[in-house]
């Protein structure tokens, strides 16, 4: 039972979308999401879908990856569609047992499905073109105004970076402990849920102890390098806004406004 590392969905490609400033991407996606909720007709959604398609082509991400993001939600999408189709009052177009499908229901259902798919696709595109570390940096930068009211934005970003950095390390460690315990005769793959949980304890106890030891070592390493929070800390790679960032942000806002108006 080895754990595979598949963290997030990030697809490291070299495209204009990948090169955009992660802060701008985050803001633009957020704006698009707000507009998706305001849009009330198919024309608006069609325009947003074209915008999304354009971004996907620019980002060089195979469209299959976007569909993969939709896969876990198929159940929800179908449920929502069926609920609207059969419970909206109006002109009946077909009848199936006690369920009456109405034309208004069909329209509402399709609108909801469009809204759903656009929302998910936009957020999937963000995680496909922005690495978790870039998103962490963007979050730190965007939340930094909250520092004034005592919000620890730097510290939170630091915790996230540490977590992201140490996930592969701990995966390796977990696999090593699993092998060591299996070699001693531990059985971790059979039995019901309760039994499996019980069998995990010989793995979890050394894992926890080692993790806390690692945290102590890391804290010591940070302290000897004079780490004292975000104040005056510099970065190896600074993000600077370029023309294409502003162009992208501007285009998203225009597309959003037009899609609401048409």
């Amino acid at each position: 039972m080895a754990i595979e590392i598949s963290f997030g969905q990030y697809l490291p490609l070299n495209s204009p979308i990948h090169r955009l400033d992660p802060r701008i991407k985050l803001i633009a996606i957020f704006i698009s999401i707000i507009f998706i909720f305001i849009v009330k007709n198919f024309y608006g959604y069609a325009l947003l879908a074209c915008f999304l398609l354009g971004l996907v082509i620019l980002s060089k991400v195979p469209p299959l990856y976007i569909f993969r993001g939709l896969k876990p939600l198929i159940f929800f999408i179908l449920l929502t569609f069926a609920l609207h189709l059969f419970t909206t009052q109006g002109t009946v177009i077909f009848q199936f047992w006690v369920l009456k499908g109405t034309i208004e229901g069909l329209r509402n259902g399709l609108l909801m499905v469009a809204r759903f798919m656009l929302l998910i696709s936009f957020s999937t595109l963000l995680t496909l073109t922005c690495s978790p570390l870039e998103l962490t940096d963007a979050l730190e930068s965007l939340l930094s105004p909250l520092k004034r009211i005592g919000f620890p934005s730097h510290e939170i970003a630091m915790m996230m970076s540490i977590a992201l950095r140490f996930i592969p390390v701990l995966v390796e460690e977990t696999n090593r402990i699993i092998k060591a315990q299996v070699a001693r005769g531990a059985d971790i793959e059979s039995g019901g849920i309760l039994n499996r949980a019980k069998n995990l304890i010989p793995i979890l106890v050394p894992l926890f102890i080692n993790t806390f030891k690692r945290a102590d070592d890391l804290a010591l390493a940070m302290e000897v390098r004079c780490y004292r929070g975000g104040e005056g800390r510099t970065r190896m790679k600074e993000y600077t806004l370029s023309q294409s960032d502003f162009l992208f942000l501007f285009t998203s806002i225009i597309v959003g406004i037009v899609s609401v108006l048409i």
Binding site: S6, P152, I162, F166, L170, F212, A215, D216
Partner: peptide
């Protein structure tokens, strides 16, 4: 104040949680 020790401990706790989440 979140000092280095606490930040490191929280960071590793998060990593451990994510690793366990993957099983």
């Amino acid at each position: 104040r979140l000092n280095a020790k606490l930040i490191a401990e929280i960071g590793l706790t998060l990593a451990l949680g994510i690793v366990l989440h993957m099983i």
